[in-house]
């Protein structure tokens, strides 16, 4: 049997598979890249060939233009294909629309690179699928016991409660353009909010794309059209716009931010967030542990995030673990 650990190696460009001569989410331009999802730190432009899910390819085209790579190929979820000496399968990761884990197999040995993932239900993407494996490469964005995300639905109710309590104030929710923004909107719709939701310009194309993919986001309008949104409206914007000059156009804006980082009070305070919403597209501590256990992996490699705590937990629980110090992924981007 092949040593599963030999299937992937770390290079400056990123995780590299020698037998298939491809990289997973490389941070520099390479000949052949497999991309887990469309967030810009994982999906960069300028590769020779890109293999990814249909949605991820579409999202990259929206963000970088049609010519973001030499050639592109769609990887249907669950369909195995041979690349060089290995077999590769994409499985849903539950992170954002189109997000996938990548399983690499050879002679019965299997390694799974999780990309970014979460276990909580998300109305805008397919749920995470547990893939049993020998080596599990997990992200660790929220790899500390302090991160336990409450149910996203309770957080959305806090937002709607605040809108009722402060009906004269425009609530501006900071949310990353891909995934979080659409999830917040979809959750608000599930909670019964039917009014028009107003969007910062940077979110419009991706929200349109989600809608085209059959995800119902309800009535949306640009926040910056000729008529400003009425006082008390719900506005979604990239986090950096919430407290910048852009927000001055709104009636007494109330700054909110949907992010797993909002679990820490000081983080919310530093950013001047009045209403922190703990809504994350990453697994929290308990879900990281649950996932490691469910994969049955004998060895865990921990990437981008707080590696040390997760490695420590694995050691205590008799699982071999090591940190992979991958450079170039944004700790903050959530």
């Amino acid at each position: 049997m092949v040593d599963p650990r030999s299937l992937l190696r770390l290079r400056p460009e990123g995780l590299w598979c020698p037998e298939g001569d491809f990289y997973i989410d490389p941070v520099r331009p390479v000949e052949r890249a497999l991309i887990t999802h469309g967030h810009s730190d994982h999906a960069r432009s300028g590769h020779g060939a890109v293999l990814a899910t249909r949605e991820t390819l579409d999202i990259m085209a929206i963000r970088y233009g049609e010519n973001f790579a030499g050639t592109t190929e769609e990887a249907p979820l669950g369909k195995t294909q041979a690349i060089g000496g290995v077999r590769v399968t994409f499985h849903p990761a539950g992170h954002v629309l189109g997000s996938a884990q990548i399983a690499i197999e050879k002679n019965g040995a299997r390694v799974v690179a999780s990309g970014d993932y979460k276990r909580e239900r998300d109305p805008t993407c397919l749920p995470f699928e547990v893939i049993p494996c020998d080596v599990f490469i997990t992200e660790a964005t929220f790899g500390l016991p302090v991160f336990n995300h409450p149910a996203a639905s309770t957080e959305i109710h806090r937002l709607l409660d605040s809108m009722r309590q402060f009906p004269e104030r425009t609530h501006i929710v900071g949310a990353y353009a891909l995934g979080k923004a659409q999830r917040v909107i979809a959750l608000a719709r599930e909670a019964g909010y039917t009014d028009t939701i107003y969007l910062h310009g940077a979110l419009i194309r991706l929200c349109d794309y989600y809608t085209e993919q059959g995800i119902d986001l309800g009535p949306l309008e640009p926040a910056t059209s000729n008529s400003a949104p009425p006082a008390g409206a719900l506005v979604i914007a990239p986090p950096s716009a919430v407290d910048d000059r852009w927000s001055r156009r709104f009636a007494d804006p109330l700054a909110s931010f949907a992010s797993g980082w909002m679990r820490i009070r000081q983080r919310a305070k530093q950013r001047g967030v009045e209403l922190p919403l703990i809504i994350s597209d990453h697994a929290d501590w308990d879900d990281l542990l649950l996932t490691i256990r469910e994969t049955g992996a004998e060895e865990v490699w921990v990437t981008h995030g707080r590696e040390e705590a997760l490695v420590r937990w694995c050691e205590i629980n008799g699982i071999t673990a090591k940190p992979l110090h991958l450079a170039g992924y944004e700790d903050e981007a959530e």
């Binding site: 016991p145 302090v146 420590r312």
Partner: peptide
């Protein structure tokens, strides 16, 4: 909770 994990957490928060 494991004291080491507690220490990492306290350090962070």
């Amino acid at each position: 909770l494991d004291p080491v994990l507690f220490a990492y957490s306290y350090d962070y928060v």
